[in-house]
Write a protein that binds this DNA or RNA. Sequence first.
DNA 1: ACGTCACTTGACACGGTGTCAACTTGACAC
DNA 2: GTGTCAAGTTGACACCGTGTCAAGTGACGT
Lengths: 166, 166
Amino acid sequence: MSDIASKVGISRQALYLHFPNRADLLVAASRHVDAENEIDRRLVPSRTATTGRERLDAWIEAFGNYIPVIHGVASALLAMKDTDKAAMTAWNDRMLAVREGCAAAIDALATDEELTASMTRDEATDWLWTLLAVRNWEQLCRECGWSQDRYVEVMQQTAARALIDG
Amino acid sequence: MSDIASKVGISRQALYLHFPNRADLLVAASRHVDAENEIDRRLVPSRTATTGRERLDAWIEAFGNYIPVIHGVASALLAMKDTDKAAMTAWNDRMLAVREGCAAAIDALATDEELTASMTRDEATDWLWTLLAVRNWEQLCRECGWSQDRYVEVMQQTAARALIDG
DNA sequence: ACGTCACTTGACACGGTGTCAACTTGACAC
DNA sequence: GTGTCAAGTTGACACCGTGTCAAGTGACGT
């Protein structure tokens, strides 16, 4: 909090006049990042895709490319999640929205009768949601040194192969 | 630390006579869990597998079923990783060993000429390593309510489909 | 001139990690 | 018996970060 305050150029206490606690500040920051980065515009290709496969690819591309944008605030929130209850529920709310995106892609696949017979819709949604976790992006792009483009490519490809039979 | 001490029945300070700090205690605990659970025995099927595919399945089964065993201490270490440097390197060391296991499975696939043409060995290793992350197990088995067996099944299946062409 | 609003300084409680000093207790050697 | 050693005890303290509180300041509109 003091780091942020001094960066902003106000006192630590002034920060508490605006945000009741660290978790709320982080949540507000993440919502701000969403607004600044036109989250809705990014999702247009995913929503307007005609086939299930296109929708899956578009969703992975949209969300995959959004991760680096929110990564800073996301990982701060993620780190608090284990100890702070408020951070935990805030993060869960945000991630539930991501799950919705995954569910929509899976539903599109199912409508096209392309969804693998080996998983239920819920399972496929859970799996895709997990694959696209921020921590996984972190591991591949930060620790393993993958480029952002390669990350998106591989995620698209492996998701398609895992979720579509044949 | 006080929680642990009182659970053990000694004073908090006595804990510091045995372990210099929290990170070291957690690392020692994880090594102890390894020893108690005959980690090597669990890996025999993986090492003696004859085909690449068998090796992949055996590795995923062995490690996947080991995650719940170390989950407690692992997630404690994981939580410290972001702030504590000692915990960070300790955890990285442990995870590098896991990566070795993934690399061995990928190599076995490559030897059988079964590894997908769309990823390098390193990429495939990174991908599998990431898929099998503790946090992913946590999400699927704890948050999403998957059973342990189903988790292993789905991981085996999706890994095989992503990593093997055709 | 007055109130109000945003902000300041400075203090403090609380919880957790890690450190330190001084004391006790039991086992063993001689 | 006495000395010694290891392992543990109590009790205190420093440091850091979050969150709270009180009192003061300075600019602004009316």
